[in-house]
Design a binder for these strands. Structure first.
Lengths: 351, 351
DNA sequence: CTGAAAGCGCTAACAT
DNA sequence: ATGTTAGCGCTTTCAG
């Protein structure tokens, strides 16, 4: 029964592989150099106040001299936490998710956390898998998954926790969610448009299956019954510039005087399309967007749109996650009430 | 000399803390349940072909039953690699870096790698620190650092490796770099503009200290000497919509017939500003951008700009990093030659 | 205040 | 083909 393994606590080891970048210093080497135990080095590196200042200085000097950097992997294992949080989104090219990424990145970064990012490319099943995997490499998760079915999310809730949901609320899911009141936003748009005398509206629908699109559509569908004399047409469209651009012809064809676009990119695309077709905005047709992406102010004419607190969502997501991770509970779900921003793309109905 | 520690290789341990999420299964538990050794479980989980199929099945069943997921932290430590790569950028709201993020995210994701993202908020020193830290949690790094001084980067090269630099080339740095030939891009713009008869150009400069801005500016400064009769004014501006927008008045004031904007956002801002001032584009003034962000096609008029392979940069960055990480060497630096995209915002010089 | 020692959960020689 | 065993590098009781 060999005992030698027990004898050299801090001594040189054999080491077959090289997990550390070549000759990286380890805590043992620093301990040796400073003539103290590994425990003391650990204490110093973690700023424990109960260390003799003189020793601490010696340790710091040794660490410096050896270019010592604690192994993140070893700390993760010993500590049982990663120090990271993860974000999973359907599409990184969508300004909405970019804002969340940004808000989260800044908030988490300020708190000294790493941020893991994964993109599902709009595939709901992939999203769930990525979320699971991301979660294994992080202590918490922010999930934007507008397409995954409610049940799927509920089924995975346990394994994903702690996590927070953005741009979406799933009934019966035990995770804080931060969402947008789409119906309210559409309500404002419609009130604005009908107030301007518009009676024939057309909705440029977002991707089928998108929860946001479903809510906006539902809110819109309720209008003709509620406001007398208002008609609504719905055109399948999409979520990108190109989709809106391509829809312009169909828009004029359907004879509506106002187009409610799924989002700002679509709205902006349709603006360009209409211009190419020689249709004046807002003279002949009014156009509204949704989201208030940075670009919306700079379209021609500037886009009337529904503003939602995009960066705030990222910041809040962090705050909720932080609370969850420190066992404080996630708090109430919140639903942000969007605000209508009237700019130049809407005007009185013609005729 | 206690020997008991040696006796229980796989036996139950005392376990003071709970590094694993509550009652998470460990490889030992699975081994026990399946009646095999931990080594075998490890082999099965990693798809080693040298395992008896029957045993493998038993192991998989046990793993399934226990909801076993290998601890990422433990693997990192044992394997000596993280399975992740990191990206550090100055500003996540910049479309340029968003594209790189996207390209990298997709390429790395496809290769089963996690992606760590950090944003320096334009602070060069912070960038370097973030890079160092990110690097400790990833096996490789993609760094976009347009502002950090050359020497600083050279000094840290060793500790950052393996890494690749994007949108920038640092002489003497031992890291592959993927960059844009800014001078060539400006060259095309100038040729186009002078060909159209423009003689008085104004450059809307980007952030001082930006390497890209410096190169574009230098290329522009060389013009008056080379092309007879051409004058160049330079206006401090910035990199955002708002900066361009605010510069519109100064642009008309300076009497130039063509404005060369630092990038597409600035160009787009100035387009809006000029419109508000009642200046016709391209009738009275021509405007060019740089980068060809997705929005550039949808401004009014559509922006003439310099197209650079944004997503390609991300993909290539991954490819280079992959090669580097597997010891294949980083290959040659590459400098992409941009392409002029003539759209509607440029036209013949007036008069 | 410091050190010794026991893990954290997994992998990979090495031996069988 | 499978098991044994020795780590990976750090943290943290527990003694002193």
């Amino acid at each position: 029964m060999s005992e030698e393994g027990l004898l050299d606590g801090a001594g040189a080891r054999r080491g077959r592989r090289g997990p550390r970048p070549a000759g990286q210093a380890t805590i043992s080497r620093v301990a040796e150099a400073a003539g103290v135990s590994r425990a003391t080095v650990s204490r110093v590196m973690n700023g424990s106040p109960t260390v003799n200042p003189e020793l601490a200085a010696r340790v710091r000097a040794a660490a410096e001299a050896l270019d010592y950097e604690p192994s993140a992997a070893a700390r993760r294992l010993a500590l049982g936490r990663t120090g990271a949080v993860a974000l999973v989104v359907p599409d990184l090219s969508n300004p909405l998710f970019q804002s969340v990424l940004r808000g989260l990145s800044q908030a988490a970064g300020k708190a000294g956390r790493q941020l893991l990012v994964a993109e599902s490319d709009e595939d709901p099943e992939e999203e769930v898998i990525l979320a699971l995997e991301a979660r294994r490499n992080a202590d918490g998760l922010v999930l934007a998954s507008p397409r995954a079915p409610d049940e799927r999310l509920r089924a995975l809730g346990e394994r994903l926790a702690p996590f927070v949901l953005v741009y979406r609320e799933v009934p019966g899911l035990d995770a804080p969610s931060l969402s947008i009141d789409n119906a309210a936003g559409i309500g404002e748009v419609v009130a604005h448009l009908t107030g301007l005398g518009h009676r024939r509206l057309v909705y440029l629908a977002g991707p089928p299956g998108s929860a946001g699109n479903a809510e906006r559509l539902a809110a819109l569908r309720a209008v003709p019954g509620a406001v007398p004399g208002v008609e609504l047409a719905v055109l399948a469209c999409g979520s990108m510039f190109g989709h809106g651009h391509a829809a312009a012809a169909r828009v004029v064809e359907c004879g509506a005087s106002a187009v409610v676009a799924f989002n700002d990119m679509v709205a902006s695309g349709v603006l360009t399309g209409l211009r190419e077709l020689g249709v004046r905005v807002p003279g002949e047709v009014s156009v509204t967007g949704f989201d208030d992406i940075p670009f919306a102010r700079y379209t021609t004419p500037p886009l009337t749109t529904v503003s939602i607190p995009q960066n705030e969502l990222g910041r809040q997501a962090w705050e909720r996650l932080r609370a969850l991770m420190s066992g404080e509970g996630g708090g109430y779900n919140v639903c942000y009430r969007p605000r209508l921003l009237v700019r130049g793309s809407t005007g009185p109905a013609p005729g």
